[in-house]
């Protein structure tokens, strides 16, 4: 299969003469375009609407009821949301989720972008290292939790033994200490997901035209300038994807915390998703749990819309 050869300098994103403007689209053309657009979206949207959208909409409805999974879902209006206002555990979970997100998001983006830039080069063994970087995401989460917990073990763990060689005094208790449990989880979270997002960045990096790099180099631009002025602008769609996904995944973080600390010690690492699980499937207050999920949804969508608008403005 031959690569399409299209006679157009604009393919490089370089300044180019504006293609001849066609007639202003008439309404029928607009309708036709909309129909074409819909035919593309429809196969996926049909499955998505039935399998995901309807249950999600039901979730919004249930957040206004006292549903306990088995019985009737009695309408209670905003009662669940009022309860959230005074629920201290919810506040703790909310705070912890923001704590996790505030560190996990920048760390993961930096680590995965760094890895992608490094492993996008023609290095000997790059293929092997790319596989290695992706491995944490593939490895069973139970094994991940077990090993990291052992590494973090305050008495027998290699990490504290290592730190102990340089600093005296009390060493961090990591997963069994109120103050250190969250940093421990953040470290493991970043470690686990950096390969995943590296993959997305790698795909994005392939769209950066090598000619642009060459041209910039000939103009005498240094590595840093090339990264800032060529790579980063070209990566913007990927950056948007990664930022949104990392943000959402951070706010939704669940299984990693469940297997590492179960939200403990005390409530030191209790996060929103786990609180939803606790309320919904340990205490069967699914109506209330749904209202927590709606709050989580609103936070994520709020952050995403801001990113979306920012991205649009940069595009314009």
């Amino acid at each position: 299969m031959a690569t399409p050869v299209v006679d157009n300098p604009g393919a490089l994103g370089l300044p180019h003469p504006v293609p001849p403007r066609r007639r202003a689209p008439r309404t029928s053309l607009k309708v036709r375009n909309a129909l074409v657009g819909w035919t593309f979206v429809l196969p996926n949207f049909a499955g998505f609407a039935v399998l995901t959208l309807i249950p999600v909409l039901l979730l919004f409805y249930y957040s206004l009821t006292s549903w306990n999974i088995f019985g009737n879902a009695d309408w209670v209006g905003l009662e669940n949301y009022q309860r959230l206002v005074g629920d201290r555990s919810f506040h703790i979970a909310l705070g912890n989720t923001f704590y996790y997100a505030a560190f996990h998001i920048p760390l993961t983006i930096a680590a995965s972008l760094g890895l992608a830039l490094l492993l996008n080069q023609k290095l000997r063994g790059a293929a092997f290292f790319r596989t290695v970087a992706f491995f944490p995401y593939v490895t069973s989460i139970v094994a991940v939790a077990v090993v990291w917990n052992m590494l973090f073990s305050p008495e027998f763990g290699p990490i504290n033994q290592f730190i102990g060689m340089f600093v005296g005094g009390e060493l961090p208790g990591w997963t069994v200490s109120k103050d250190w449990a969250m940093p421990a989880v953040i470290i493991v979270g970043t470690w686990r997901y950096m390969g995943y997002y590296m993959l997305l960045f790698l795909a994005g990096l392939q769209t950066v035209p090598t000619e642009l790099h060459e041209a910039a180099r000939i103009d005498g631009a240094g590595v840093w300038q090339r990264f800032w002025n060529v790579t980063l602008p070209c990566l913007r769609p990927t950056m948007f994807l990664v930022t949104v996904m990392v943000t959402i995944e951070s706010f939704k973080v669940f299984d990693l915390i469940l297997v590492m600390t179960e939200g403990g010690p005390g409530q030191a690492t209790l996060v929103l998703s786990q609180y939803i699980w606790q309320k919904g499937f340990e205490q069967f207050e699914l109506g209330y749990a749904s209202s927590v999920a709606v709050v989580l949804f609103l936070i994520c969508i709020g952050v995403t819309v801001v990113q979306f608008l920012y991205n649009k403005r940069r595009d314009a």
Binding site: G173, K178, G264, A268, Q278, Q283
Partner: peptide, 18 residues
């Protein structure tokens, strides 16, 4: 069930000496 969740948190906080 709700009380046991709270006491579970108490257990990990106390036993870890947090």
């Amino acid at each position: 069930s709700a009380i046991q969740t709270i006491l579970g948190d108490l257990h990990s906080a106390v036993m870890s000496e947090s």
